[in-house]
Amino acid sequence: MRVIDVSDLGRTFRSRSGLRRTEKVVEAVRGISFQVERGELFGLLGPNGAGKTTTIKMLITLLLPTSGRIEVLGHDVVAKPREVRRRVGYVFGGDRGLYERLSGLDNLRYFAELYAVPAREQRARIGELLELVGLTGRERERVEGYSRGMRQRLHIARGLLHRPEVLFLDEPSIGIDPVGARELRQTVKALIEQGTTVLLTTHYMFEADELCDRIAVLAGGRIVAEGTPEQLKQKVSLGSVVEVEVFGLPGGTDERIRALPGVRSLVVEERGPAQVLLVHAEPGSELTQPVLSALDGAQVGRVSTRQPTLEDAYVELVGGA
């Protein structure tokens, strides 16, 4: 079943600024379409200003689309915002969005009330969420004394109070330490296992690679690629990368390597006494042996081969858009 159905979605912003009140029109989202199935973890990637947050805000009813339509859990976000709000959760990164002078517990109580969590279930639900995000024991302290990681975990607990069927996570791992980020990924995985559908935006490629079932890459308000992380890596024509450390590169070697079949490009970097050859292969080519033979007896240090990462793919996709 389709949980999120976005078709031809567009959003423009008009703002007036300066003394002459000149109008500026910005097209933040320009006709995007995608679908998310129940239980899927869908990633929205893209550089700053690509339209990720604008898209999420339209999905959670905070912004009206200027064109196209969105259905979340079968409800139109424009016509039936309350139906949507009841069933979705929203968590954003950073340390805003909390009442600093209230305790973590009071913050959760407040939103439990606003999300109509039945009074008799509140206590248990809040307790179980505090346990889930690891804030048990700290819940009576005021939020102003919380660390960034604790705030983020409190945010997640807040977003889950009403057991949303869909959770929107807008750059949730921004500014938290690696251990916190890892715990966050564990929490997200656990939610998916329980059947929650998650839409995630992030700047961290390894995070997207590890978590997402499918990814859409946004750039300039358009979707430039969509698919599983594997599909995205294959979609961009990247082969493996061979790195060879050489001490004293014989003259003419670089021409010989460039002439090898399957070599797409060669970069030579000077690193102290050594040179490092970075050989980018065409997809499907295996170059380690040919490159080593071409070096013809020169003193060779470390040799390594790596597969292209999602980040390589992302950079190529976004750069090309």
Partner: peptide, 18 residues
């Protein structure tokens, strides 16, 4: 300013009641 207005609007409780 503290980023909670959006959360209040995004909640199903009608804003006047909040």
């Amino acid at each position: 300013r503290q980023g909670t207005l959006e959360l209040l609007v995004a909640a199903p409780t009608p804003l006047p009641v909040v």
